[in-house]
Structure formats: structure tokens, C-alpha cells
Amino acid sequence: MTEHLTHLRADARDNRDRIVEMAREVFAAEGLDVPMREIARRAQVGPATLYRRFPTKEALVTEAFGHQMHRCGQIVDEALTDPDPWRGFCTAMEQVFELHARDRGFTAAFMAAYPKALDFTAGRAQTLVKVAELARRAKESGGLRPDFVIEDLIVMIMANSGIRASTPAAAVAASRRFAALARQAFAASSERVNLPPVGRVSLVVT
């Protein structure tokens, strides 16, 4: 009996892990509009199994991208410890852009309004509060242009998420170059930065 229960628990855990992994993969490649039943089909589980573990898409998105959200917060926390606020701001921007370039599903989740996914929306709100504090310090140091607003960074994140490249490495390379361009745009002075090489990107017309 004990072995049977252990086997059932292992199967349930495997199903859950497969659902989350498939959701992460599908959302990253195709965005958040993929139906829950399609995710269940690709994960090779029944819809009832999926909904038993994740009653809403918000719950599945939260689980699929919880690690990325946590990492986003870590990046900004690390930037806040930099004695040079402008350098910290630029480093955080590059790392956040790279995180989003690797996974456009996360960008869609980060930008989406999910009032039922309290953990996710709370994490996003906390991260943006920290970014605002980082920006305030960067302005006071004279590095960040005084008319910068947090919406400017959000617009840049949205633009960065539009990068389409032949490989993940090329997407990251393009993202780093874009971050360098954003740094130049956000700088209070007429600073010129050396642009990193860009990978092969695709022109996609929708």
C-alpha cells in the first residue's frame, strides 16, 4: 500500500513538473494566448489533471515564471548595492533586458495584469518600486537624465522583447547592444558608449 501511494505521488509530481515545463516552453515561444487545453495536450496529460493543479492560467503563469520574477528582483537588489548608482542602473538594465530576451513569455507575463495572481503582481510591484529607487539615486548622482520616468524603461523592455534572432545567443547579443543604445539615450550627459556586436536578427512583419 505504501509503495502504491509513493508511486501515485511520484506520478503526480512528474505530471506537475511536465505541465510547468511545457507551459514555460510554449509561453516563451508563442506568448500567453495558448489555450490551457493545448498545454495539457502537449504535456500529455488530461485537461482535468492540469486544472486540478492549476485552476487558472494566472496560477500556471505564476508558477512557470516565478524564477524569472525572483531573479528580476535579485538583479535590482544587487544594483542598489553598487556605490555608483548610474553604473548599477546600467548593469541592471542590461541584465534585465537579457532575461527578457531569453524568454518573451516572461515579458508578456511581466507586462500582463493578473489581479488573481497575487504573488506575481506583488513581485512585479516590488521590483518596480526598487527600480524607481535605483533611478532616483542615479539621477542624484548626475548619471541618469533628470526627465527619466519609469515608463521609459517599460517601453524599452517592450521594445527589447521584440527582438527575433536566429539563435538564443544571437538574441542575447542583440539585447546587449540594445541595452547599450538605451544607456546612451538615458544618460544625462552626451556620453558615447562602445556598442557590443549584434547577432543575426530577423525582420518579422506581422
Rank of each mutant, 00 (worst) to 15 (best):
V20N: 07
R42D: 04
V76W: 13
R53Y: 04
R18L: 06
D77P: 09
D82S: 07
K57Q: 10
P55D: 05
D84M: 03
Y51I: 02
R71L: 11
G88W: 07
E58N: 07
H70N: 14
T56H: 06
A92D: 09
A12C: 11
E38Y: 00
D17M: 11
F89W: 00
R41Y: 12
C72V: 10
D14G: 01
A12K: 14
A23H: 12
Y51G: 04
C90Y: 12
M22D: 02
P55R: 02
A64K: 13
G46D: 14
D11K: 15
G46C: 08
A43I: 01
D84T: 02
G88R: 03
M22Y: 07
H70Y: 13
E78V: 10
I39D: 03
R52F: 05
E30C: 10
R52H: 10
E21C: 08
A59P: 03
E78C: 05
V76C: 10
R18H: 11
C72Q: 13
G73Y: 11
V20L: 11
A48I: 01
R42I: 01
K57T: 03
P35S: 03
E94W: 03
W86S: 02
F89N: 01
M93I: 09
C90L: 15
R42H: 06
V45H: 08
A48G: 06
V26S: 06
V20P: 10
I19R: 05
A12M: 14
Q74P: 00
D14W: 10
G31R: 02
R87S: 08
H70A: 15
A29W: 08
R42V: 00
D17K: 13
V76T: 14
E38S: 08
